[in-house]
């Protein structure tokens, strides 16, 4: 994966922001880069046209909040996952998209979605402690992957397609063989989990997963220093594992971001790892190099953000914000 021309996280700047009626939970670009789709604190999916911000509301697919988004490889369909446990397929570019297909995917929330590199499979992770694989083409259940002992928060395919990675509340990352459905390895992400005895709560978990395009690194994001989980006292943390040896190579931190949690991760074309963190003083895009513990750059967003998607050309980031806006940040110098 070559770095796109002009990529320079230190030159990041917001190029657009568009409103919605409720706080946003999720944001993703479609594979052809025409739209930003969002999920929010209502039962809608929002589509924003990247060229002009024109908003289209997609209704009828969910009974409550929309949490996760994914796309068919050709960009023809967007698939939304909701807190109602449902997956809904929509035509991405239809003038007024209607639900094409809705399936009962999980008992409890759908927490995360990912599509396999070959475009054939959709993986969903849920609060029923299950991971399920579906045919993208017709929504048929292909395989169920039981084995997690707590809510499954994150899912990502290895770029070569043979393996699936899933992370849960207790800080367990499982590696699954996609062909057989067998769990083959476990990465220990326990630093991302906290049990606070005084408050008697489990907290944290693997909120985000990303495998580097060259397959060398597995990154798992979340939080640590959770001295007061119920009061949002914690800081963002990313664990960087060597894929082959499973060795925890590095713990990426971002000092000074109290109340921070890494909600999303993406690898950039220059080999940087980008993380989205919320925090008491707003939202942040954080940038790390694999050989350094601390972020080499952070871009402050005007409001706390909860999710991000990287544009297929690798230069723009869509972030979903609590203040009812989706924002587009360009990771390059401003155009004169």
């Amino acid at each position: 994966m070559a770095a796109p021309e002009g990529l320079d996280p230190k030159q990041a700047h917001i190029v657009a922001q568009w409103p919605h009626d409720r706080p946003l939970n999720a944001s993703r670009f479609d594979p052809l880069g025409r739209y930003v789709f969002c999920g929010s604190e209502d039962a809608l999916v929002e589509r924003y046209q990247l060229a002009d911000g024109a908003r289209t509301l997609l209704s009828g697919g969910h009974a409550t909040w929309v949490r996760a988004l994914a796309f068919s490889q050709d960009g023809a369909y967007v698939i939304s996952g909701g807190h109602d446990g449902k997956l809904t397929w929509w035509e991405t570019a239809a003038e007024a998209p209607q639900p094409v297909r809705t399936i009962e995917a999980h008992k409890g929330w759908v927490q995360a979605l990912a599509v396999s590199p070959d475009g054939a499979l959709l993986a969903s992770a849920g609060n029923d402690n299950l991971v399920r694989l579906w045919n993208v083409s017709d929504g048929a259940l292909v395989r169920e992957l039981p084995g997690h002992a707590s809510h499954v928060y994150s899912v990502a395919f290895h770029p070569q397609g043979a393996f699936l990675l899933t992370g849960d509340l207790m800080g367990v990352i499982k590696q699954w063989d996609v062909a057989s459905g067998k769990a083959t390895r476990t990465f220990d992400a326990a630093p991302l989990h906290t049990y606070e005895g005084g408050q008697q709560v489990h907290f944290g978990g693997v909120r985000a997963l990303a495998v580097s395009p060259d397959g060398k690194w597995l990154a798992g994001g979340g939080l640590y220093k959770a001295t007061n989980p119920l009061g949002a006292v914690h800081e963002p943390l990313v664990l960087l594992f060597d894929w082959e040896s499973q060795k925890l190579e590095r713990q990426h931190i971002a000092e000074g971001i109290t109340q921070g949690v890494v909600w999303s991760l993406a690898w950039l074309g220059d080999g940087s790892l980008m993380g989205l963190s919320g925090g008491g003083s707003g939202g942040f895009l954080l940038f790390w190099k694999p050989d350094a513990e601390k972020d080499y750059h952070r871009f402050g967003l005007p409001n706390l953000a909860r999710d991000m998607g990287l544009h297929p050309e690798g230069l723009q980031v869509a972030t979903a914000h609590y203040d009812r806006h989706v924002r587009i940040t360009r990771l390059a110098a401003k155009v004169a």
Binding site: V201, P229, L230, A232, Q259
Partner: peptide, 8 residues
């Protein structure tokens, strides 16, 4: 205990 859920 505990339901004092200012967070999550």
């Amino acid at each position: 205990s505990n339901y004092d859920t200012h967070n999550e």
